[in-house]
Write a protein that binds this DNA or RNA. Structure first.
Lengths: 350, 350
DNA sequence: CTGTTAGCGCCTTCAT
DNA sequence: ATGAAGGCGCTAACAG
């Protein structure tokens, strides 16, 4: 691979100055249409590619956004994948790329690493994914004068932006839905305890019951882990009890799938004998049998909004715009929920 | 955040030349111990951080490795997470970082994008994760003179390195194990059809049966998708048949879990009534009940070896070392397999 | 609209 | 062991 053409080469080829070539290529500043075309042609002919290294130094920008996350606990996760996809989407079409850092790495010492990344100019902005309750590290960056946005955690700090999902609102909507249907005996499959989302959903569960004067039966609140299998086993037990809930709210869709399977194994009909609601609206939630009532968590949107926010701040200069945004997770009513003891209103064949 | 200290600042502070400072900081070339200390002190005091942008341009290196993968289909995957973790581990302690690119993005057009990444000097090397059977894009890079390593696909090309798992070998070992135990009726839960690994494991399944003169019963080969749930449902049906296998080889551990659950629901004992083997040795395979016999796929190792290979090539200059490496996935015999119709040899309490 | 000048911060080379 | 000179490729700022 021979060293690629430089701006200088194009300048020579066209007889123009390097500046004119630079302007023509970057579409910035004045440049005659005629020369722009000539430059474009020469660039194509020479197969010119910017040397980003030079561009970076010259413009004092890395053209990179850093994504900081607890890789170990998150990477194999649909949630995180979607966030990255969203961020990726926001960046496609720009000169920006994503760089990945591990907040659980030994080298991370309390975020010092990140601060250095910024000061080293390796990244122009940071997307901090902080799903765990004990993630204090976003605060490390509070005084870092660098575009930064926290995803999946609502940091109430004037200088730190965040994008989060309104878990409480959405979980409340689900619970309201179940209550409206007439359910009085509602069970809950909690998510991983150390994850903020999970605790917010449980909070909403308890609160909504209280609001309606319904009892909170601790025996019906089971410690899930967001995964199908644990949910399956827990539900198998829960639904075998003499006194069992008529509806179950699972804190994630995979868990809801597990509950559905358990119900089926026990010869319980969903939703006739037991209503089941999930949370996420992940792939397959619409196609499963019965299609799942859930909250459509806009995961991709999280990444998209976060990345766009950073791009905005980078482009509009020093204007310190801070966003504190809670995205809606709209209630999606499908066929896994119905009034207790009743057939569903509509029934699709499958 | 004020602009960080530069080498110039340290030079002024110590009264030395920039070069001496540079040498002292990078531990390259001659430098008196005395000055080295003074420089170190000044650097600490001024909180100096290299400006990577400058270093990059000067040394014509991006200090970045690109990871190219079909994000959509892979990111939410344990497999990919481990690969990234491994690569990450190899890089920690170096100046290198990871950058993430999507081979399914519309901007990717046949790898052109990547080639440009390289020519733009945004990355110094490429880790190409190509798990799908129709991933032709590794070949796009065959003539690209840039450190490149394909992960999860055995590309038989002289100029392209790869690191892969020996799926055929490991799957064969599992099958041999089952056959040795005396099983003659063995079923198979296949993985996603478009994934290379899956087809290799199926191949080994068929071949080993043939080797031992055992019949390949097509009805016992079921189309899984690597996930628990599908496996659960398929196994539920398979194990309910009058004529059912005495052992089942699932092409992934999660699927094996699904089979175990199905067996339990059907009141079949594992391994007394049916032996079950998986593939992966993922988290939980040792702790589940019964502990799973499986092949320990070294996923982290994939990323580690790949990244180290790139680092080697980058550091040893133009020596065109190419590696074609198939990592072993050692057979791990636990308690989910036993001779047909017999109690297991050992039994742990739980 | 175009060109000149200068510099980003580091590192390589060579001279001292 | 240290320093001086110069360049990496691009772009900002200013001049024409």
């Amino acid at each position: 691979m021979k060293p690629p053409a430089t701006i200088m080469n194009i300048a020579r080829a066209t007889g123009l100055s390097r500046m004119t070539v630079s302007r023509a290529l970057s579409n910035k500043g004045y440049c005659s249409e005629h020369n722009r075309k000539r430059v474009g042609a020469a660039a194509k002919k020479l197969d010119y590619q910017v040397n980003m290294l030079a561009r970076q130094l010259s413009s004092n920008r890395a053209y990179q956004l850093g994504v900081i996350a607890p890789i170990q606990g998150l990477l194999g996760t649909f949630y995180f994948g979607q966030i990255l996809l969203g961020a990726h989407g926001a960046l496609s079409g720009t000169d920006y790329h994503l760089s990945l850092f591990d907040s659980q790495s030994e080298h991370f010492n309390e975020g010092r690493k990140c601060i250095n990344l910024c000061r080293q100019r390796r990244v122009d902005g940071l997307i901090v994914v902080a799903p765990f309750l004990n993630d204090r590290f976003p605060m490390t960056f509070a005084n870092l004068d660098m575009p930064l946005v926290v995803v999946g955690s609502s940091i109430d700090h004037k200088t730190v932006s965040y994008v989060d999902v309104d878990n409480v609102g959405a979980a409340t909507a689900i619970m309201e839905h179940l209550v409206q249907l007439g359910h009085k005996k509602i069970g809950f499959l909690a998510g991983v305890r150390v994850v903020r989302d999970a605790s917010e959903r449980e909070l909403a569960f308890r609160k909504t019951l209280a609001t309606h004067g319904l009892p909170v039966v601790e025996d019906w609140i089971l410690p899930g882990d967001y995964e199908v299998r644990k949910a399956f086993h827990l539900a198998l037990e829960l639904l075998s009890r003499r006194d069992r809930p008529t509806a179950i709210f699972a804190a994630s869709d995979p868990m809801a799938f597990g509950v559905i399977d358990a119900a089926r194994v026990l010869n319980l009909r969903v939703p006739e004998d037991v209503s089941i609601a999930g949370f996420d609206d992940t792939a397959g939630s619409a196609e499963c049998s019965p299609p799942l009532t859930t909250a459509a968590q806009p995961m991709k949107q999280l990444g998209l909004v976060a990345a766009n926010h950073l791009l905005d701040r980078l482009n509009q200069g020093s204007a310190h715009t801070i966003i504190h945004q809670k995205l809606e997770a709209p209630l999606v009513i499908r066929e896994s929920t119905a009034p207790p003891g009743l057939r569903p209103l509509q029934r699709r064949s499958r």
